[in-house]
Every structure is written in structure tokens, then in C-alpha cells.
């Protein structure tokens, strides 16, 4: 049974996840822009890798880094670097700058960090938690935080780390903090996981697994699944849907002036028809396997940049219940 759709903009935290190449960052950026345009104060947090979000929203914008920067009115973008987050955390805990420097500049500690798994995920989510607590004049500084999570595979691991650390550590501040982060992630009123899939075999299967594991292993809420880059129907109404076959039937020697040969036209048409059918088939598979409302987003050659186009792109995501396929 799919949970009821709460307006996505009423959440505190939306974690956008998906395999590399699904357009996850575009979806995260679009959602953040749309929310900001509706008057919310929004933060978009990019995690790991290279900073991309500012280039999607305001092409040419200088890197925002860990300090973050307001890209458009009401929308701040930050890039969470785990080392900076760790230094900030230690600073908050130890309250003495010198001690933090001593630790962070220690070569042995750097090597320990290089090898130790898990701390990047924990400290990153800890930073997100911390941002969610920030207040200005008694009101949350950020009403909505959109996280562009690491690609799936690492995506769920990313969310599981607070639980793992909370269990592995017996006592002390770290344990308490890990539990706070876990509480926020698991609160269905506040936090939503938004998977982004492609209508292709591997992403479709991985998304189904993600939805299933997110529910059974982690317990984070998922109320809709985004299927991105779905090819539109190739032929307009009135044009037969075997147009490619008909083009193939034309003698290739027929002169068409400046147009490509009939067989070339046929190949183009059948490519786009096959692509659409392939996508349509996997959209249905995702619908069956995920048992959630789907948000179908069109394939946009060349990508989407700029606040205006992104806000338009996000419309179907905001509409509760998504769009008909």
C-alpha cells in the first residue's frame, strides 16, 4: 500500500537519489528552484563529487563551496565536503580552534580518515541535520532542504550509516548525534526519499530494489518515484504508427532532392519509435514493481539549465499523484 502523498513542499528534507546518468542532479535542482519560486526558503545540498548544481541553476556562477551562496532569491546552494564538515563538527564539540587544527592536520589522522569507511556519509548527513536545525528569529532558516545524494549503490548505504554507527558505538556524543540524524531521516512527516529512475532495464530494476530496501532496511518514506528522460510518442495523431516500416518499403533509389535516402529516414523513425516503446515498457514495469505513483518527465536533449526552465521541468514533481503516463 503506497503511503498518502503529502505535498512535497511541506517536507523539511527531500533526499534525491538515483543511479548516475538518471538526471538526479537536474531533478534536485528543478525541485529546489520550483520551491524557491513558490516563496519557500530553500537549501540545495550537493554531496561529494564535483560541484554541479550552481551551473545548472545559474550558468557561469562561481563555485559555492562549503560556505554556500544564494543562487536565486530564496535558494541557497552548498557543496558539502566531508573534511570541512568534520572540522566544523569537531569545532562545535571541542570549542577550541587549536585542538581542531591539531587533529585535522595530524598526518596519522588523515591516513585514518582515508581508510576508514562510513565517516564521510555520517558527517555529511550530520551537516544536513545541523542545517535543518538552523533558525533565524525563531523560524527555520531553511524550510526545505533538498539533498542531491550520491549515486545509488552508495545511495542507500549513505542513509544507513547513522544506524550502523549508532549501533556500533556504545556511548558518548557520537552515538547520540548518530541517533539524532537517524531520527530525522526516518521521520515520514519531515523526510522524503525521492528516487529518480530511467525507463531502461538496469535502472528500472535498481529502482525497484531501492524502493524495496529503503522500506525494509532503512524505513525512510518514499511516496512517489520519478521516471526521467522518457521518450515522447514519435508519431503525431493521424500518422500511422508503422511509418518506419512504410519508409523501409520505399525503393531506396527514389530521389527525394535534399532529403536523406528513404532507408535513412526509415532508420531514424524506427530508432525513435523503438526508444519510445522501450521506455513505455519499462515505465509500466517500474509502476508495477514500485507500487508508488510515478512522475513521468520527458527526455530533454541537451539538458535543462536556468531557473525558468528548471521550474517548469519540476511542475509534474510538485503535482501530487504525478501525471498520467
Amino acid at each position: 500500500m503506497a503511503p498518502e502523498l503529502t505535498p512535497i513542499l511541506d517536507r523539511r528534507l527531500v533526499i534525491v537519489t538515483g543511479k548516475g546518468g538518471t538526471g538526479k542532479t537536474t531533478v534536485a535542482a528543478a525541485l529546489a528552484v520550483a520551491a524557491a519560486r513558490q516563496g519557500r526558503s530553500v537549501l540545495i545540498a550537493e554531496v561529494g563529487g564535483q560541484e554541479q548544481v550552481p551551473q545548472f541553476i545559474s550558468p557561469g556562477h562561481p563555485p559555492v563551496g562549503y560556505a554556500g551562496s544564494e543562487l536565486i532569491p530564496g535558494l541557497t546552494s552548498i557543496h558539502i565536503d566531508p573534511h570541512e564538515a568534520l572540522a566544523e563538527y569537531l569545532g562545535l564539540q571541542l570549542r577550541v580552534r587549536g585542538l581542531v587544527d591539531l587533529v585535522m592536520r595530524n598526518k596519522g589522522f588523515a591516513q585514518l580518515l582515508n581508510a576508514a569507511p562510513g565517516w564521510r556519509e555520517l558527517i555529511t548527513l550530520g551537516k544536513v541535520w545541523h542545517l535543518a536545525q538552523m533558525q533565524d528569529a525563531g523560524r527555520p532558516r531553511y524550510e526545505l532542504i533538498v539533498v542531491d545524494a550520491p549515486a545509488t549503490g552508495h545511495g542507500l548505504t549513505f542513509l544507513d550509516v547513522p544506524r550502523v554507527v549508532g549501533n556500533a558505538v556504545r556511548a558518548g556524543p557520537l552515538r547520540g548525534h548518530a541517533h539524532l540524524v537517524e531520527e530525522l531521516i526516518l521521520d515520514p512527516e519531515q523526510t522524503l526519499l525521492l528516487p529518480v529512475a530511467l525507463a531502461e532495464e538496469l535502472p528500472a530494476r535498481e529502482t525497484a530494489e531501492l524502493v524495496q530496501r529503503a522500506q525494509s532496511d532503512i524505513g525512510i518514506a518514499i511516496d512517489r518515484v520519478v521516471v526521467n528522460a522518457v521518450a515522447p510518442p514519435p508519431f503525431p495523431p493521424g500518422v500511422p504508427d508503422d511509418l518506419d516500416t512504410r519508409l523501409h518499403a520505399i525503393d531506396d533509389a527514389v530521389a527525394l532532392g535534399g532529403l536523406p535516402r528513404p532507408s535513412v529516414l526509415a532508420t531514424c523513425a524506427s530508432y525513435l519509435r523503438a526508444r519510445h516503446q522501450l521506455n513505455a515498457g519499462y515505465v509500466e514495469q517500474i509502476r508495477r514493481d514500485c507500487d508508488r505513483p510515478l512522475v513521468i518527465l520527458p527526455y530533454c536533449p541537451g539538458g535543462i539549465t536556468g531557473a525558468g526552465p528548471l521550474a517548469d521541468f519540476a511542475e509534474p514533481i510538485l503535482a501530487a499523484g504525478g501525471l498520467p503516463a
Binding site: Y89, L90, Q93, L94, L99, L102, V103, F109, A168, V169, R170, A171, G172, P173, L174, R175
Partner: peptide, 11 residues
């Protein structure tokens, strides 16, 4: 010692 202060003894 500093790390232990933050992480807790058991860890």
C-alpha cells in the same frame, strides 16, 4: 584523546 572525547570511550 581528542577524538575519544568526541567519539566516546567504547568506540
Amino acid at each position: 584523546q581528542i577524538v575519544e572525547r568526541v567519539s566516546g570511550v567504547g568506540f
